[in-house]
Amino acid sequence: MPDLKELMGSIGNWFLFSKRVIGLFFREGISRKVLIQQMYQVGVRSMVTTCVAGIFVGAILAIQINLQLKDFGAQSFLGGLSTSTTIRNLGPVLIAFLLSGRVGAFSSAELGTMAITDQLNAIRCLGLNPLAVIIMPRLVALTISSFLLLVLGLGLTVFGGIIISSIYLNVNPLQFVSHIPQFVSGSSIFIGVLKSFLFGLIIGTISCFVGYKTTGGAEEVGRSVRRTAVVTLVSIIVIDFLVSFVVESVTQLIMS
């Protein structure tokens, strides 16, 4: 267990790192070619997995909610409730978990390897800033790709719900869809999208930070990958809670 002082120090370093790299993005921008190249490496290859995950997540949650609704005889509301819950909470979290392993761990390993084989040092010695030319494009691409993949995944959860409902739960697709507008308000969509963006940012910044800071040998790269996965997962859960909590509280306040 890391002690508290070390933990706060690491969080501080991560924050400064992220601020610096994101600052570089806003100051110097990024060439479209480089961005698309990076996004392809990171994002396009994960599309199939994300789609599959999205469908299954939607299906699982539909089954789960259906169980509760059956007792109340309220199955007609399945579509609305399932979609709402999925988009607000579990959907972003579960899909982000998947991406942190697939996309975050990979980037962290790549950057870690570059760090320990002096590739980043070699770039410094050319008079270039590795943060600007290597890290920043990856971080930006990771964030944007993760965000887009999350949104895509979330969208597909609806399909997952529809499919499982019609095949297995005996709920008509039209019926499933009909109540969605009722339960899935603008705020639900807003939360889903906001979380997708924040999770994307978490995946991007943490994997790049941990990878960049790797020193030592191959063993350390493995350790960095593990650290990225764990820290990302924990951060996702924490942020998920905070966002939900804040939005609910604010909503309550507005209502009353």
């Binding site: 084989t117 002096d118 590739q119 040092n121 070699a122 770039i123 410094r124 010695c125 050319l126 008079g127």
Partner: peptide, 23 residues
Amino acid sequence: EEKMVTVRQKCGLVFQMPALLDS
């Protein structure tokens, strides 16, 4: 770091291991 960038443009270092970007 900013000042060192100019230094490194005047004085290059070639590493023992090639350190080329794999990608």
